[in-house]
Design a protein around this nucleic acid. Sequence first.
DNA 1: GCTGATGCGTC
DNA 2: GTCGGAC
DNA 3: GTCCGACGACGCATCAGC
Length: 559
Amino acid sequence: MTDFKELVELARKISMTTSRNEKIELVSSFIKELPEDEVRHAVLFLLGRTLPPGDERHLDVNWRALLSVLKRMTGADNEQLFKILVQAVDIGDGFKKALEKFEPKRQSFLFEQKLTIKEVSSYYNKIASLRGAKSRKYKEDLLFSLFSLADKDEAEFLARNLTGEMRIGLHEGLMEEAIAKAFQIPARLVRRAVMLRGDISEIAVLAKRGGAKALESIRIEVFRPLKPMLATDADSIEEVLRELKRASFEFKLDGIRLQMHAKGGRIRAFTRRLSDVTQSLPDIVDQFSEIFGSREVVADGEAIAIDPEGRPLPFQFVSRRLRRKSDIARSAKEIPLRLFLFDILQIDGKMLIDEPYFRRRKLLEDLVDEEWLVPARVCESEEEASNFLKEALDRGHEGLIAKKLDSIYTPGVRGKNWFKIKPVLATLDLVIVAAERGYGRRHKWLSDYYLAARDEETGEFYVVGKTFKGLTDQEFELMTQRLKELAYYDDGHLVKVKPSIVVEVAFNEIQKSPKYESGLALRFARIVSIREDKTPEEAETIQNLRRIYEKQFLHKGKI
DNA sequence: GCTGATGCGTC
DNA sequence: GTCGGAC
DNA sequence: GTCCGACGACGCATCAGC
């Protein structure tokens, strides 16, 4: 039984170095020595996860629950804790600082207990299993008990782990290399195994138990989702064609990525992060059954919402279907989804991911009626591809995905074989009216900015979204200074400022907002420049935003 | 039974 | 999802 | 080229509190 303390110490060392090689070495020598039944949890915990993927339960514990436990332990009031947390680098640091400042109350145990890796995992299990009335309280009781067994450093680790933000500069990429190094397996092989299984903690165990041989024997299994292949951003069609010369361009649909599995008449649908959403999507299941009957198949596609004329609806509609458990039949009728396939990964036991794209696509076209396929066209000239892009946009879609014709399907990889091309939209000049202090590496700065549009009738500013993207570190530094000078309210976290600074903001879509008074919100807002030349009075108006919102429906459907 | 807070997962 | 920073 | 860490919008389910 390995002490939890050792894992905490390892995490500390990992966070101390920025060298990737050093991180890999640290993790690798640690997991090499670990008993087989602890490897899985150690890997998960280091990556900021609690339960293994595939476990349908969740802890339902996050920073609010943690705060409540912290209150119980320290006896401090909200104000005292807020003061500490606001100055902390992140929640883990805040926990540690609060426990240092106030001598914590702890649950007393009958026997002296020491936290082990397995003990923590067992607590997580119990917390995840609790449901129903008063379960929040019982979860907090368990957390109190868990934190009672932890010293300050362990508490810091736990707080980070439970919020999923370890911030030690270690994710799956380096973990794969660490596993490879620990068990002397080529990194390539580890990576491939993780892709096919979608669960790195399981691969770590397999690697320890069976080495390279065990990983080599891994195949796609129906009903076990693999990671979907991803696309790299491209600025233009020209850039893509320079890279690929000739490529297949497919419509990029704005819906949910679905990996469909079928065998013996049973059908399952998995999302991009491999959760099973079959239950919410009976219409998609029917469609897949119509397409493939009871054949054994694994296919990749996108589901979008469509109006009676077959035009795509905005993403917001699709998301209403997604995790629904109640009134499923009714909502399926209100917002019908339609599946569009673009890849096939396995059929009748034959794995296809190592076949080149053009063969997989050809096979798909032979097997499936065109109406179920994402429209695709092979282009080698910019003009041809541009026309196809225009067609996609005219039909209300997001853009194009360009695919290298002879590329294999590399699950989980965002590489140079698939590119996404989204058109650049006009930007908006908006006013910063408030800001929030950042966390982690941004904790000294005002990092998240409230963006507002002006009401041309009243002159008031209305928030239409927040963004933390687009500025360089240096610009954050300067912006923080400027905003502090404009502040008329500052509680340590939220800073409200006099409308003065105008920024040019890019976005992908304007959505209806239930949260903002303006009724509108920007999707994927990011700052592209600071408009030193503009005054707030010259900024975008809320009236114009409404017009832009309506214009989006020129190509999109409405119910 | 309703409402708001919280957590989670999609993009 | 999207961006900048760091290796 | 690749990985990592900053965090955005929504909508659903679940639970607490009235």
